[in-house]
Design a protein around this nucleic acid. Structure first.
Lengths: 125, 125
DNA sequence: GGCATAATTCCACTTACATTGAATTATGGA
DNA sequence: TCCATAATTCAATGTAAGTGGAATTATGCC
């Protein structure tokens, strides 16, 4: 995950409606929700919601799939985990910081490189 | 941590210069860095940096302390951890999601509620 | 084909954000 | 006290983001 992707994800989440949408989808689970259900749940106009869904989708935070007439959106958990890893990158490696960095510490190097399965890379300054 | 604080933190981080500043401070450790050193390291004008430091500080992501003529800034790790917890709130609780939610899962409830100050003791995972 | 539903795209508008240069506050030393 | 350093605050400008209304695309059913 590069800085551009991180900025894109953070920008997407730094808006109230989009934050609400994302959290709703996180809690909805892998099955996701159709756009209409999201709009109704949050009380947002359909066109406005479309705009925000596009931003989240483009940022890689949510996925889209069609099911008949409905477009179903669902959270991309892996992308979120990669984002967190990036923010704390090169934090846990410092002996002095180990305690402060928190729960992400144990797995940060992998999360930072996204898509999991990464096992070796550590330092990048 | 409430939604307002989360939005404030995400807005602060969704800007390239501020993201660079925060990551630099995360990697610098609890001792932090003076404003001038940050400005030089990132190649940003002093007044512009001041503006961004104020935003990060107001969002609770960094702390400020004076040391002679210098103002030293340091990362607020606990705030960052609380932010991550909030984003994944009510995710790990769902049996279907447990695997997808990732590393934060094990400690999310605490991070989400924790208003504690920097370097607070954290439970083992 | 004709019609209704689901959602998106396009357009104009208003507001908020980031940057720049000049002026100001705070600290330390001669 | 006077001056230099460290950093912030103020005022002005250009650009990007969010919202609302009307029109458009995609799918399903009769």
């Amino acid at each position: 995950m590069d800085k551009k992707a991180v900025l894109s994800a953070l920008s997407a989440l730094s808006q109230e409606t989009r934050l609400d949408v994302f959290r709703l989808l996180v809690q909805a689970g892998p099955d996701g929700l159709p756009a209409g259900a999201i709009a109704e749940a949050l009380g947002v106009a359909p066109n406005t919601l479309s705009f925000h869904l596009a931003q989240l989708n483009h940022a890689g935070l949510i996925a889209q799939r069609r099911e008949s007439r409905s477009l179903i959106y669902s959270a991309e958990y892996s992308h979120m985990n990669a984002l967190m890893g990036f923010l704390m990158e090169n934090c846990c490696g410092l002996p002095a910081n180990a305690a402060a960095c928190g729960p992400i510490c144990a797995t940060a190097p992998e999360a930072a490189n996204g898509e999991s399965t990464a096992s070796s890379p550590r330092r990048r300054v």
